[in-house]
Amino acid sequence: MLAQLRELYKYRELLLMIVVRDIKVRYKQSVMGLLWAILMPVLIVGAGILVRYAYAIAAHKPLDLADIVSVATKSVPWAFLVASIRFSTQSLIYNPNLVTKVYFPKEIFPIAAVLSQLFDMFIAGTVLAILLFVLKVGLGVQVLWVLPLLGILVLLAIGIGLLVSAGSLFYRDVKYIVEAFLTFAIFFTPVFYEVAMLGSRGKWLLLNPAAPILEGFSSIMRGRSPNLYWIGYSLVFSLVTTLFAYMLFKKVEPLFAESI
C-alpha cells in the first residue's frame, strides 16, 4: 500500500498533466468556455429557489435571503460532487489507449477527474464569493471551516470515483446505475432543504456522508459552526471508503488491460 502510494507520488507530474488536459479539453472549441463551470450551480440554485419559494408559500412564511444564500452555497459543492462522480465513472473507459498501451498507476484517471472538477468548483466558488460580497452577507471566522469541509468532500469524491471508474470498466451497467443514482441523489441530500425541516426523523438523512458536509456549509452561512459529530462521521466514512476503494482498485488494476 505504501509502495503504491509512493509510486503514485512519483507520477504526480503525470497526474497534473492529465488534470490540465481534462480542463483544457473541456473548454476547447466551446463558445461559453469557463461559463460552463457556473452553469450547473446556477441551475441548481434556480431549482432550489423555486423549491424554497413553494415551501415558503406552503408555510405562510416570507422567503428569507438567508435561505437562498444557503441553497446557493450548497449548490456549488454539490455540483462538484455530482460532476466528479460522473466524470470519474468515464475516466478509465474513455481512455482505452492509455489503459491498454502504457503503464502507469491507473488511479491517476479518477483522481484527475475529481481534481479537474475542483477547478470548476473554484471558478463557481469565486463567482459565489463575489455575489455574497455584493449581497453584503457578513461572514465570521466560521468561514475557515470551508477548507476542511471541502477536503472531506474531495476525499469522498475520490473514494467513490475509484470505485465507479473501475466498476464501469468491468461492467458497463455501472455507468447507467451511477447516472440514475445521480439524478435522484439530490432529493436524498439536503441541498434544497435543511435536515431540520424534516423534524427529528431528518437525522437519518445525515447518514448520507455528503449531507453533514452540506449542512456544514449551510451552518457557516448562518454564522454557526458545523456539527462536529456529524462532520467527524463524514470524515471517517470518507477515509474508510477511499482506503477501501484504493485497495480494491489496486487489486483489480492488473486486469484492466484485458478487461476493458
Partner: peptide
C-alpha cells in the same frame, strides 16, 4: 519505456 503505440497518449483536441 515502451513504444508499443507511440501516439497512445495524444488527445485530438490538444
Amino acid at each position: 519505456s515502451a513504444l508499443i503505440e507511440v501516439s497512445a497518449g495524444f488527445h485530438p483536441d490538444l
